[in-house]
Design a protein around this nucleic acid. Structure first.
Lengths: 250, 250
DNA sequence: CCCCTTTTTCCGCTGTGTGGAAATTAGCTT
DNA sequence: AAGCTAATTTCCACACAGCGGAAAAAGGGG
């Protein structure tokens, strides 16, 4: 069982983030559906600890404390993966992501944006269902078929776009293809017009993460998939090798 | 009044951060002094929302959700200030910081590190008392004398190093000097061997922030203060001008 | 295989968090 | 200026959510 007030505090912080980092109390109330008194009390607590700031017009904004926590969290995985992601950006010209499985969700844990003007928006920290993304397919493909089916039954396979695969049978076939090819595609299955190519990251015995590049459909479709996938696999392999060793410190 | 469970959840997150981003339950218990059952329940809530992750060895680590919130928070002020801070780094060769007053504390909200090998460690998000830092003096100097004295009485003026100014009278004289010169120095008053020079950022009517450069005493002392301060004031003025306009959107 | 350590679950009591509604403040409009 | 509206902030009695001690379970060495 979860702690209600913490969940609500997180709702408040997330709604602030969705409003671009700052919002009035009533905007938060509209978004979260919580009563005013409650939100105000939560905000005061966060305020006292520096995780939220109040601007001169009384609006609330995400505070500097979050920068610190975020920085440490990012330092953990992100900085580790960043050089490899940067090489993928160099290779493909597109935004590169690192994602891991967390429960039934795929979570993006690091990103290096493409230098191009038209590029993917930051989605670090976002949680998505695996069936509609390239990284999700790669991560699912490593599981036993019945395990994957169980998960898909639990989550359902909601249709995100007309291209989304919504049938378990079709998904199993797709996962087989992913295993055979060694990479997965997302052809506008999560968001129309956005295509991705993902490859697995293995620490030697298991697939622990997936790395992908994503960008506008036209640009992604223009490249030779096999060739791009081969380049990405090389980078993912190097990253995986760094994860593998005897765990290092402590 | 604050919400207990949120405060405690923040304690837990902070203790994780202090442990370098990951720790076992008992390490957290030792640091926070909270009972095991309580910590575990808090962690489960944070876990369910992706703000904490559990590694295979059952240790807990800061999660990707924080990267997202931190990113948005940083995006707000930091990205805004970053180009200006970068110019200060270029000008001085030292790490540049942006700090604001929050309650009785000075909080560092953005930083651009020096390219040099020997440089200040990231302290974004850190809260310090104003009396022992250059940015703090700049921010205090904008206040009425009795206002500043009240604040200093509230916080006390703890001695951080042998150089710390710990007497209200001496501090008032120092603040007068800061107003007259248009910049403040910190000569190892917060940390021995670290010197800083800070200038105010004004949005046209009030000092809303302070920008500083800091580095090893030898390097900071080697430059012409007046000249460096003049250059920094120019940059701070430009930044302040960007903050001033009719607030922009909405 | 057994013992020791660390993590996880459980459950009855109490003190903490809740939220409706009133008071206050800020920002407009006349 | 004064009055109005829309927002934020404070208050309080009740109820139940969260607390934490202690027992159970899971690891992990030896």
């Amino acid at each position: 069982m979860s702690v209600q007030s913490i969940e609500r505090a997180l709702d408040v912080l997330e709604s602030l983030a969705e409003h671009g980092g700052a919002a009035g109390l009533s905007e938060i109330a509209a978004k979260t559906g919580l009563p005013y008194g409650t939100i105000h009390r939560l905000l005061r607590t966060l305020l006292a600890r520096g995780y939220v700031r109040q601007e001169s017009d009384r609006r609330y904004a995400l505070g500097a404390g979050l920068m610190r926590l975020g920085g440490v969290a990012e330092g953990m995985v992100g900085a580790w993966a960043r050089p490899y992601l940067a090489r993928m950006v160099e290779l493909s010209g597109e935004t590169a992501n690192l994602a891991v499985m967390e429960g039934d969700f795929v979570v993006y844990v690091a990103q290096v944006p493409s230098p191009r003007r038209l590029r993917m928006f930051a989605e670090v920290g976002r949680r998505v269902l695996p069936h509609s993304t390239a990284v999700g397919k790669v991560l699912l493909a490593d599981r036993a078929a019945d395990d994957a089916v169980t998960l898909l039954e639990r989550t359902g396979m909601p249709r995100r776009t007309p291209n989304t695969i919504t049938e378990a049978g079709a998904m199993l076939a797709e996962l087989g293809r992913v295993r055979a090819l060694g990479y997965a595609m997302d052809l506008g299955e999560e968001e129309l017009g956005v295509h991705c190519l993902a490859v697995p990251v293995s620490d030697g015995e298991r697939v622990v993460a997936a790395m992908s590049v994503s960008g506008p459909a036209e640009r992604i479709d223009a490249v030779d998939r096999e060739e791009l996938a081969e380049g990405m696999r090389g980078i993912a392999r190097a990253f995986g090798a760094e994860l593998a060793p005897v765990s290092g410190e402590r």
